[in-house]
Design a protein around this nucleic acid. Structure first.
Length: 105
DNA sequence: GTCGTGACTAGCC
DNA sequence: CGGCTAGCCACGA
């Protein structure tokens, strides 16, 4: 229990690490996990500045629509990582989202 | 101290 | 049904 004043960014990475393998979470879910459900926007920024993959399973974080997200050119890598975890992603859309969506934050 | 940007979301036409 | 706009938050320079 460290009462560290980590920035929103650090909290986001921490929340991503809490996502069990084989499951995925949504940006809004992470935002809520960090205490700012309305900061889903900052969540994307935080992951964008993440220390690096797969140090932080940011690839397990997807959009609320079930899309992989607006990942820049790394979208392909993200899909590969998701497929490796067990999430079936085709055409940039998660099929097993409904069964693997980790909304138990 | 201020401005701009961004891996988003929801509502509207 | 499909695509677009506006709004929101946090961080960096």
């Amino acid at each position: 229990m460290e009462a560290k004043k980590q920035t929103f960014q650090e909290k986001v990475w921490n929340a991503c690490k809490k996502i069990p393998a084989g499951k995925v979470s949504t940006y809004a879910g992470i935002a809520k996990a960090v205490g700012n459900p309305a900061a889903f926007r900052a969540v994307g920024n935080a992951l964008n500045k993440s220390p690096g993959m797969p140090h932080v399973p940011c690839h397990r974080v997807i959009k609320s629509d079930g899309g992989l997200g607006g990942f820049a050119k790394g979208a392909k890598v993200k899909r590969r990582l998701l497929a490796r975890e067990g999430v079936l992603a085709v055409h940039g859309r998660v099929l097993d989202l409904g069964k693997r969506l980790f909304k138990d934050f």
